[in-house]
């Protein structure tokens, strides 16, 4: 599902005294079947953009089109939209209420009496890497990583084409985080989902994302594929946007030694590149 923002402006106190723009003149196109990241410092407008895509807020001026839905239009059907677009909030497990995982996941499909729904629950659990033994467990006894995956499964059961996630890795330890990242990649490649992630966790984002939108003070600083965006370290620094550690280190090495290590997708590739340069240096 494609997301298009056209000349979008939004303010929480629109046309009131001291009007403060939360988003200014946003023009961006987020293409289907990719993972998109939205980053920026505190108060840059990330969450506002997310609430607009969620359909809870309406733009003051401008248009938002997501798939076939015109979110700013008068005939916008929120119920239908909800089925195609899944939203995973920050700490989604805090909203658990079902006494079993099955009940929790099947909530928007009613109680799992028919086997059809039970199958769907199991399928949703499988998508997040949990087996069917979880169906009858209480969601409150799971660890944070498992809880997060159950929360995602409860969104996946209605088979949304677009997933919007607010800080999906927040509060997770390293192992749970890695598992979640693999899951998101699988949702993109195997299940053809479009995923939009709003996050501070750029190190995680850098490994899995295709495109990045950088916000500062309500405007887009730069948007595009991750390589072209993260090449501009000084622009990101100027706009208080976080830079992935691998990229930051690579820039530091370039500044101090003049050695350009090229594109490094993660920590291991950085280690390999340093090793290679180090061996060349000691061979000479």
């Amino acid at each position: 599902m494609e997301v298009i923002f056209k000349d979008v402006n939004f303010s929480y106190n629109y046309k009131l005294k001291n009007e403060k723009m939360a988003l200014k003149n946003i023009n961006v196109k987020l293409e289907s079947n990719l993972i998109h990241g939205i980053i920026g410092s505190i108060g840059s407008g990330k969450s506002t953009m997310l609430e607009l895509m969620n359909g809870i807020l309406k733009p003051n001026t401008g248009k938002i089109k997501i798939g076939k839905y015109n979110l700013s239009g008068k005939n916008f059907n929120f119920n239908k939209y909800r089925k195609d677009v899944g939203l995973v909030y920050q700490f989604p497990e805090k909203y658990f209420f079902g006494s079993t995982v099955g009940e929790e996941i099947s909530f928007n499909k009613k109680i799992p009496s028919s086997s059809n729904i039970k199958d769907k629950v199991i399928k949703a659990l499988k998508m997040v890497g949990l087996d069917q033994t979880y169906v009858n467990r209480s969601p409150f006894t799971l660890n944070s990583g498992e809880k997060r995956r159950v929360a995602i499964a409860s969104v996946l059961i209605s088979n949304p084409k677009l997933l919007i996630m607010d800080e999906p890795t927040i509060g997770l330890d390293n192992n749970s985080k890695k598992m979640l990242m693999k899951l998101l990649e699988k949702l993109k490649t195997k299940y053809s989902k479009t995923i939009i992630i709003v996050t501070h966790d750029v190190d995680m984002l850098y490994e899995i994302v295709d495109n990045i939108v950088v916000l500062n003070k309500g405007s887009i600083v730069i948007a595009g594929d991750k390589l072209s965006v993260f090449k501009n370290v000084s622009l990101l620094n100027q706009n208080c946007a976080p830079v992935p550690n691998v990229v930051r280190m690579e820039k530091l090495i370039y500044d101090k030694t003049g050695i350009d290590l090229g594109y490094l997708p993660n920590m291991n590739s950085l280690v390999r590149a340093i090793k290679k340069e180090w061996e060349v240096m000691h061979h000479e």
Partner: peptide, 20 residues
């Protein structure tokens, strides 16, 4: 136990393995 080690520490741990 799956703890997130600071980036520089993890990098130096890995480089130490190669005696760099």
């Amino acid at each position: 136990i799956g703890l997130e080690v600071p980036f520089e520490i993890e990098l130096s741990q890995k480089l130490r393995v190669y005696n760099i």
